[in-house]
Computed example of a mutant assay.
Amino acid sequence: MRKRRLPDETGIFIVLVAVLAVFSILSPNFRTIDNAFTLLVNGTVIGFLALGQTFVLLTGGIDLSTGANIAMSGVLVALVMQAGVPWPIAVVIALIAATSLGVVNGLLIHFVRIPPFIATFSTQGVALAIPLIITGANSIQVRDIGFSWIGQGRIAGVPVPVLLLLIAAVIAGFWLRTTRQGVHVYALGGNKNAARLAGVNIARTTILVYAISGFCGGIGGMIVTSRLMVGFPATGTGNELFYSIAAAVVGGISLFGGVGTVLGAMIGAVLIAAVSNGMNVLSVQSYWQSLVIGVIILVGVSFDTLRRSRSGRPVFAKRASGPNPPPTASPPTAPPQPITTPSTTESR
Rank of each mutant, 00 (worst) to 15 (best):
A83C: 00
G84D: 07
V85C: 10
P86Y: 07
P86W: 06
P86E: 07
P86T: 05
W87L: 09
W87P: 06
P88I: 07
P88N: 12
P88G: 11
P88K: 09
P88C: 11
P88H: 04
I89K: 10
I89V: 14
A90Q: 05
V91R: 04
I93G: 08
A94C: 05
A94P: 03
L95E: 10
I96H: 00
I96N: 00
A98S: 15
L101W: 14
L101E: 05
L101G: 14
G102M: 04
G102V: 01
N105I: 00
G106C: 05
I109M: 05
I109V: 11
H110L: 02
F111Q: 12
F111Y: 15
V112Y: 07
V112G: 00
I114T: 10
P115V: 06
P115E: 08
F117L: 14
F117I: 14
I118V: 15
A119D: 01
A119L: 01
T120Y: 00
F121Q: 11
S122Y: 04
S122W: 00
T123W: 04
Q124P: 02
Q124F: 13
V126Y: 03
A127E: 00
A129R: 04
I130N: 08
P131T: 09
P131G: 09
L132T: 06
L132E: 06
I134W: 14
I134F: 15
I134P: 09
T135S: 15
G136V: 07
N138L: 12
S139D: 10
Q141C: 03
Q141H: 11
Q141F: 10
R143N: 14
D144F: 11
D144R: 09
I145Y: 10
I145M: 08
W149V: 13
G151K: 01
G153Q: 09
R154I: 01
R154Y: 12
R154P: 00
A156T: 08
G157V: 03
G157S: 03
V158R: 02
V160F: 13
P161E: 06
L164H: 12
L166D: 02
V170K: 01
I171T: 08
I171D: 07
W175A: 14
L176S: 10
T178L: 13
T179G: 09
R180W: 13
Q181R: 15
G182Y: 11
G182M: 04
G182H: 07
V183F: 13
V183C: 09
H184S: 15
A187M: 06
